[in-house]
Simulated scan of single mutants.
Amino acid sequence: MEGRPGYREALERLRSAQKSAKGVSLYSRYVNRPLGRVLAAAAHRVGLSPNHVTALSGVCSGAALAAVALASPSWPLALTVYAGLVLGFALDSADGQLARLRGAANPAGEWLDHVVDCAKITALHAVVLVSFFRFHELPGDGWLLVPLGFQLAAVVIFFGGLLTDKLTPRPAPGARAAHAPAPSRLRAVALLPVDYGVLCAVFLLLGDERAFRLGYTALGAAYVLFCVAFLVKWFRELSASASSAARS
């Protein structure tokens, strides 16, 4: 342990080395990131690497999602699934924070993180489909299309956001950045419907089949609307960036 900072010191370093809150919803900003900081400091203290934490995130999320597909809906299952998903989400935040704390960020770690995220997003809606088919008394077979539509919107938002970030031109080295405005609290509230933490909370309704089905469907409809809005926004931003680069 010699040379490794204690838990409190690691936690303080993490507090002062946070990513920008721009474009981050209220839940991620005030719940998931702080919880991830605590887990990252603990992981650093015991000597875990960022990839270990990513793997733990996948295990927690995977176990919770497997339970949705394998067990009949109940209130104990709802609490168990919610706890597993929230812990997996917090560990997903912790791996990046730990990488920054240790100066160990690298393309392989980022790749692993995104692969686990992709698996988690696709599996979540797949297990809901399985649960609908196996355990729910659905009013009609059309309800089986809801998880598929939700999955499509979620995957497109995930990859669209990643691609937009990768394709957006970075400022030239040494260029003076304009003063960035403070992150908008209103925007943080508006983004709550597409925050993964809110999606996790829907599983608290799993003890009541009708409440879960309606809550999940309502959130799925919100994802579809946000998906359309995001795609238009990202396409316009990238088009404007290309036009600006062509003129310069």
Rank of each mutant, 00 (worst) to 15 (best):
P73N: 04
L214F: 12
A108T: 06
W143C: 08
A78Y: 02
A240I: 08
L199R: 12
V194M: 09
A55W: 04
P76T: 06
P5C: 00
L70I: 13
A180H: 13
K166G: 09
P171R: 05
A63D: 07
E2M: 10
V155F: 08
L98S: 02
D92N: 00
D165T: 15
E237F: 10
S131A: 13
C60S: 08
F135P: 09
S244K: 15
T54H: 01
Y27D: 12
A222R: 13
R102F: 06
H52S: 10
L138A: 01
V68S: 04
V86D: 02
K166V: 14
V59S: 04
L148H: 04
N106T: 01
P73A: 03
Q18K: 12
L77D: 10
L204P: 07
K233H: 13
S241N: 13
G47Y: 01
D208G: 00
G149N: 06
G3F: 05
Y223N: 11
L205V: 10
P5R: 03
N32Y: 11
E137G: 12
A246C: 08
L163Q: 11
V232P: 07
L77M: 02
R45P: 07
V38E: 02
R37I: 08
T164L: 12
S131V: 07
L39K: 03
T168P: 12
A83Q: 06
L231C: 14
P73F: 05
T168A: 15
V224P: 02
V224I: 12
P147M: 07
H125F: 10
V232L: 12
D95S: 03
R37T: 09
P73M: 02
V202Y: 02
L138F: 04
S20C: 07
L87G: 00
L219V: 07
P139N: 04
R100K: 00
E110H: 09
V198K: 06
L91H: 05
G23F: 00
S20A: 14
V53T: 00
V224W: 08
V24K: 15
F235G: 12
A222F: 03
A83H: 00
G215D: 05
L70C: 10
G47T: 08
Y82L: 14
R187W: 14
S93K: 01
P34M: 05
E237M: 10
H52V: 00
G62Q: 01
S93I: 02
S74Y: 03
F158A: 10
V224K: 09
D208T: 09
A64Q: 00
L144V: 05
L39V: 06
A63L: 05
S16E: 15
S184C: 04
G88A: 00
S241H: 13
L87I: 01
V146G: 03
L124Q: 11
L231G: 12
E9W: 01
A105F: 10
A63T: 07
F133L: 13
L186N: 10
W143I: 14
A71M: 15
G23N: 10
S16M: 07
G161D: 11
L225M: 13
L163Y: 12
V81D: 02
Y82F: 15
G36K: 03
P169E: 15
G142W: 06
S49Y: 02
A201R: 09
W75G: 10
A105T: 13
L152I: 14
P76L: 01
G103N: 07
